[in-house]
Design a protein around this nucleic acid. Structure first.
Lengths: 244, 244
DNA sequence: GATAGCCATTGACATATATCAATAATATCT
DNA sequence: AGATATTATTGATATATGTCAATGGCTATC
């Protein structure tokens, strides 16, 4: 909660510096969802957004708070997490340029998960009302939106199965593939997330995550040096993922 | 939302009195999402649907198969489940009159979970293309659709937390409240689902589910007689749900 | 009414996983 | 550079949970 307050005051300080420094029409880091919008519509978005920057660790928005904006990450890396009973569950990492399309906007105007910057990040915050209006007016944009929300749901189902039906080794394997294939997009990759975050992705304790990382290292499936991980034997790791 | 709940439970009691209608316009068991459609649009739906009936236990559609329809349950009870590695995970029960809005329709035209009839059931299958076209044409209908999909996502998040962060007792408590409050809508309720299904909702083995049911019975939190369950001490059960 | 077959129940046991505690390694700040 | 906080690692231990096997009850079928 303290972090959130800090985050808010921080972005208020920086806001004027970033606000409307670019515009959406010429923005070269705009989300692909905007391909469905024409120039007039982009200009509408442009007039109803502002940019914010976050330091690593800062909370972007907090589960339970009002959700008057959609947030688009323009640089850095963010984690989305549900705050449960004592523990957190990370339901996804978000990298540029991607929208965070929380389901609360169409239901109760509340965030149903929290978001925090993992690395130093910048984001565009677009007024949800403006966004909703464009969804009403432009069917292509609406379909694109629904497609993204659907993709998110499908991703969630996969995580569901991983977390509820696999044992720890399989879950860590899944997390490593997710990081390598979908987030850092390289094979020797340097994790900017902490061990605790890795554990929160895999639904286990930090200690268990570390132990399994070490086991994989001892079996030459991985090389692990601090935060740098190299998947040496992807085939075997895949097998571990599949056998649970 | 309240109205929706009331409408559904009212319908459940009176279900036997309903006879299936010949067209969507006069159908008195149509989904409330159709309130957003005018007569002409309803007629379009009417011409692109067909009714099916399922015996208890029959599979309605199978994960991985093409998904050319949206399915609306008009009587009975259905379970939605992800087929994992050996086990199934039930991600929700569906009762009349509710649509099953699978996310695959907008992504890869595949079902991402399976559905099966728990009780003898009937359903309307509406052509997905027709549905999508109406979403393009009618913004109110589109918003209603997005709202339902969002609600589903929020429900999934809750189950996510329950399954990954609570121990078995808390998970069974959650499942029992779900059944009593949202599915059977009464307190002494008769489960038409099996013990295995209860276990698949709670993400545990059948034996564990049975054992915990028995513990709750021994502690006078529940009375359990075959498939009839009475929550005697909801306050204590709630506490068990919250403390995990 | 007997038989088969499925579902529910119970107990004993193995093990996956969390928790606690101690230490090592990094990062952060002055 | 030194001090302090934060994060990572390791080991020992407790326990939550799954698996296996045996039994009982119910239902359906002929």
């Amino acid at each position: 909660m303290k972090n959130f307050q800090q985050g808010v005051s921080f972005y208020r300080q920086k806001m004027s510096k970033f606000s409307h420094s670019l515009n959406c029409i010429e923005c070269n880091c705009k989300s692909l969802i905007f391909n469905k919008l024409n120039e007039r519509e982009l200009e509408t978005i442009n007039q109803n957004r502002y940019e914010v920057s976050f330091k690593a660790g800062e909370v972007m928005f907090k589960q339970g708070t009002p959700s008057p904006h959609f947030l688009c990450l323009t640089s850095g890396l963010a984690k989305l997490y549900i705050e449960g009973y004592g523990k957190n569950l990370i339901i996804g990492l978000v990298k540029p340029v991607e929208y965070i399309l929380g389901p609360g906007v169409y239901v109760d105007n509340r965030h149903h998960y929290s978001a925090a910057a993992v690395e130093e990040s910048t984001a565009c915050m677009v007024d949800a009302g403006t966004y909703k209006q464009l969804i009403r007016e432009n069917p292509d944009f609406a379909e694109e939106f629904i497609m993204r929300v659907s993709n998110q749901a499908i991703f969630n189902f996969d995580q569901f199965i991983s977390l509820t039906q696999k044992q720890m080794h399989g879950r860590i394997a899944d997390a490593l593939f997710y990081l390598s294939d979908s987030i850092y997009c390289s094979n020797p990759f340097t994790m900017t997330i902490s061990r605790q975050d890795l554990a929160d992705i895999s639904g286990m304790s930090k200690e268990s995550a570390i132990r399994i990382l070490k086991e994989f290292k001892d079996e030459n499936i991985l090389s692990v040096d601090g935060s740098t991980v190299h998947i040496l034997d992807p085939k075997l790791l895949k097998k571990i993922s599949e056998t649970g």
